[in-house]
Design a protein around this nucleic acid. Structure first.
Lengths: 118, 118
DNA sequence: TCAATAATTCAAGGATTGTTGAAATATGGA
DNA sequence: TCCATATTTCAACAATCCTTGAATTATTGA
């Protein structure tokens, strides 16, 4: 991930409805959710949710796939992971000793890692 | 970090000058940099850099401290770490098995951790 | 083919955000 | 005190972003 992509991702995530969409899709997993379902759950108009989905797609944070009359959206985990990496690289570029505590967060994704460190 | 803070942080980081400021301050470390130095290095007007510094301060990503005639800004590492955690929590809320690779990034902050995992 | 469903696109407007340069504030030294 | 330095604040304008509802496209089933 370069600065350009990071800017676009941060921009996409800096709007309430879009952040909620991403969080919902992340929880939904690889099966994703239909645009209409997202609109319904977040109580937002179809046209408005469509606008925000397009924005998230442009940033590369989500993908779409038609299924019958619905269009199914799902989170791009690799892009989210890339953004996490970008932020941590920034952090470490300065003072690894200071930002090391941030590494703790990794435990939430890799519980086995935490065990090994005991 | 709650959604409110995350939104504000993402908004702050979604502007080129501000993202560059944060990256510079992170590299600068705890000593920080004077507002004028930042403006000079990024080739931005003092009033414009001041506008963006205020925005980053509002988001809690940086701190300031007067030193003689200068005002020294420095990165808030804990807030950045909090944002990393927020993103990873989101990731893990869904499918830990899928987003686990993101945990690799932790290695950049905690090289000792990586050794232990060999 | 026709109607219903699902979603997108478009244009208009309102709201927010970014830029600029001039004026104001704060500090330190002569 | 007076001047130079360092930074912020302010107002005006430009640019971007968000919302809304109506019109459009795509798909399915009767």
């Amino acid at each position: 991930m370069d600065e350009r992509q990071a800017l676009s991702s941060f921009g996409a995530l800096s709007q309430e409805t879009r952040l909620q969409i991403v969080r919902m899709l992340v929880v939904a997993g690889p099966d994703g959710m239909a645009a209409g379902t997202i609109a319904e759950k977040l109580d937002v108009s179809p046209s408005n949710v469509s606008f925000h989905l397009k924005e998230l797609d442009r940033a590369g944070l989500i993908s779409q796939q038609r299924e019958a009359r619905s269009i199914i959206y799902s989170a791009n985990y690799d892009k989210l992971a890339g953004l996490v990496r970008f932020l941590m690289e920034d952090c470490c570029a300065g003072h690894p000793d200071i930002c090391a505590p941030a590494a703790e967060v990794a435990a939430c994704c890799a519980p086995k890692m935490e065990e090994k460190l005991q």
